[in-house]
Design a protein around this nucleic acid. Structure first.
Lengths: 225, 225
DNA sequence: GCAAGATTTTTTGTATACAAGTGCTCCCTA
DNA sequence: TAGGGAGCACTTGTATACAAAAAATCTTGC
């Protein structure tokens, strides 16, 4: 069954965690995972350490890996940082983007529009990433773009949860339009401010959502998606 | 000889890289490293992957790990991001720091002063970190503080190089004083701006330094320290 | 003499065996 | 009965053996 390399295994476990199949705080046994995926402990260990490096797990020496417990407070902190990073990207992008990049941004925005109109949240989820990545790349700071992408990916599962909320897609699409306009007009301050708010509102709403989910003693967020 | 756990091994290799014992682009052979440290390949592999996760190495499947080649451009990008992250920390810290944290900041600043006066760059290097970490923590955003610390650590070797430059310690100390004052007075904008510049100037100067070093075909930066 | 392909060699990736540390249970004692 | 400690089971950390893939070398045909 296992056809991919070691990185594929990491992705699989990552997906399991993101999907909520492993609950926060749960201990991940190496041998169980090894049996489950039909491999030995060695590649499992590598995947686990890689996931720990990206923050999804916490490994304590001789005590195994546990799924990182991302509290609502912590999550809000992460969205706060994401908002600032995106704002920085937008600010730079407004000054540095080329004409070709403007067109690519417009294309991504248009694709978001189609997805939103069709109410296809999975598609929107994908096109939304494309739109944001355009801005990251548009900053013309490779390191900033990479960091932004990494954090974006890290927050993706939570963001996905958000898109199901009533009217969120339409609102998001409208905000994208204003952001793209600000960037293309070279207004860095406005682009940064709009993008910052665009991300922050997700963070706030999502932190609330997680809080309420926990209050309802609903430990498995995957089933809410 | 090996008394520490696996994380100690990672630190040792990290130090070797930082010290410039392995040149950028150089391939790190697992068996050679294993022999060198008197362990088997297994812990070496773990350390290598961990270092790759933190960006010091680059691992390609079946092709081993090579020391990441951090170009001057790339380095400047990193300092640019660092500057913005620190500015964000300072902005938050100016609003959120407690009285106790103000005192800790002052203490760190005073320690920097002592080191600067004594011309002890190693000591200054240490106390400087303490000063900056105070601000990170003062942001009262745990995630932001962690990310900032990680990037700070990543840039540390280059920063260290910088401190030897004439008058850099004294200038740095003076800038610290202005930053601390802005934070304590609650002036977030000024604190952010001053800290941003404080970091950026290091980045600029350092990028120049690296460029000149490379132009002189001096591939081993450790010998310049 | 050169280039393309096959073979050999080297190095990484994986599996398994063993060592060592942690946490748990159970017993002993106060 | 409660607390503490010794022993035990279980899990992680490390070493070694083997498999597979990539790089290097050699051969062969033109």
């Amino acid at each position: 069954m296992r056809s991919q390399g070691t990185s594929g295994l990491k992705d699989e476990i990552e997906n399991e965690i993101i999907a909520g199949r492993f609950q926060p705080g749960e201990r991940l046994d190496e041998v169980s995972l090894a049996e489950r995926y039909g491999v030995s402990r060695t590649p499992i260990r590598e995947a686990l350490h890689a996931l720990a490096a990206s923050g999804l797990l916490e490994v304590r020496p001789h005590r195994g890996a546990i799924v990182a417990d991302v509290s609502p407070d912590r999550l809000f902190e992460m969205f706060e940082v994401m908002a600032e990073m995106e704002a920085l990207c937008a600010w730079r992008a407004a000054r540095r983007m080329t004409e070709a990049e403007h067109r690519e941004l417009d294309a991504a925005h248009a694709a978001c529009g189609v997805a939103a109109q069709q109410g296809d949240s999975d598609q929107y989820y994908y096109e939304n990433e494309r739109f944001h990545f355009c801005i990251y790349e548009g900053s013309h700071n490779g390191f900033l773009a990479e960091q932004s992408k990494a954090l974006h990916r890290r927050l993706q599962p939570y963001r996905r949860l958000q898109l199901r909320v009533r009217n969120r897609m339409t609102t998001s699409y409208r905000e994208h339009g204003e952001i793209a306009a600000a960037i293309k007009s070279g207004n860095g301050e406005e682009a940064a401010d709009r993008l910052r708010r665009h991300v922050l509102v997700q963070g706030e709403r999502f932190a609330d959502l997680v809080s309420s989910l926990r209050a309802l003693k609903q430990p498995n967020p995957a089933e809410m998606v």
